[in-house]
Design a protein around this nucleic acid. Structure first.
Length: 229
DNA sequence: CTAATGATGCACT
DNA sequence: GTGCATCATTAGC
């Protein structure tokens, strides 16, 4: 791998050489990618500047056999089409008529996998301030700001205009950078939220979040530690 | 604290 | 027409 970080003194604003997320992660099945996305940095660029936050809660929606997935059975429609593109693509859909949900497409082209980003944590007070402004609320508590897929999209001003774009392009509207490593013991594994229609897939522990992180949307009753296989 | 409810628009049978 | 991978608000402990 060519991992040279050239200190390119660009005349534009200085982009500190941060490492992009390893492209290997995008090629994994969603179930493997979901826990690995915890702790990674999500960067949103708008006309107002950049917002940086850390992913603290994810859910796996992987493969055509997952009854909880929009692409169950290989359903290929206008909405699900981007799920079939290669890993690293952004999948965004509108839910309940008023909220957007952000997903990271993973695995290979033609194999529909996605990881729902359910909660993020602003990296700095400045990031939190901009997110509060986009939410149109005064900051009260962490999970109230960006704990939940709809809330985080509002807080980062994410909508369907980003659908189909890539996450591996720094300086684009939205991209991912490598965060600090996360200890496996700090990861909780729990059933996914609000998919009663998924039958035998409803209770599978395909949600992952950082233990004791206040930005997480819903704490599970039994906080089972994440088990590596 | 928990539970119920309405908002709201679009994808899809 | 039906049903959402949600959230804020309200009502009831």
């Amino acid at each position: 791998m060519d991992c040279n970080e050239h200190e390119d003194r660009s005349s534009r604003e200085s982009i500190r050489p941060r490492r992009l997320l390893s492209p290997d992660l995008y090629r994994l099945p969603a179930l493997q990618a979901a826990p690995l996305l915890l702790g990674q940095h999500l960067v949103r660029r708008t006309e107002d500047g950049e917002i940086r936050c850390r992913i603290v809660e994810t859910e796996s929606y992987g493969g055509i056999e997952d009854k909880g997935s929009h692409a169950f059975g290989g359903r290929r429609t206008a909405r699900t089409e981007v799920m079939f593109s290669s890993g690293g693509t952004i999948y965004i859909y509108l839910i309940y008529g008023m909220y957007h949900c952000l997903n990271v497409v993973t695995a290979g082209e033609g194999d529909p996998h996605a990881v729902l980003i359910r909660a993020v944590e602003p990296l700095t007070p400045g990031d939190a301030a901009q997110m509060s402004a986009y939410r149109g609320i005064a900051y009260r508590n962490p999970s109230g700001l960006s704990g939940g897929p709809g809330k985080l999209c509002r807080a980062l001003r994410i909508d369907k205009s980003l659908n189909g774009r890539r996450l591996d392009v720094p300086g684009s509207p939205l991209w991912l950078e490598q965060g600090d490593p996360v200890e496996s013991l700090d990861i909780v594994q729990a059933p996914r939220i609000n998919i009663p229609y998924a039958e035998e897939y409803t209770q599978l522990p395909w949600r992952f979040y950082l233990r004791n992180n206040p930005y997480v949307s819903v704490k599970d009753k039994l906080e089972q530690p994440f088990n590596l296989r």
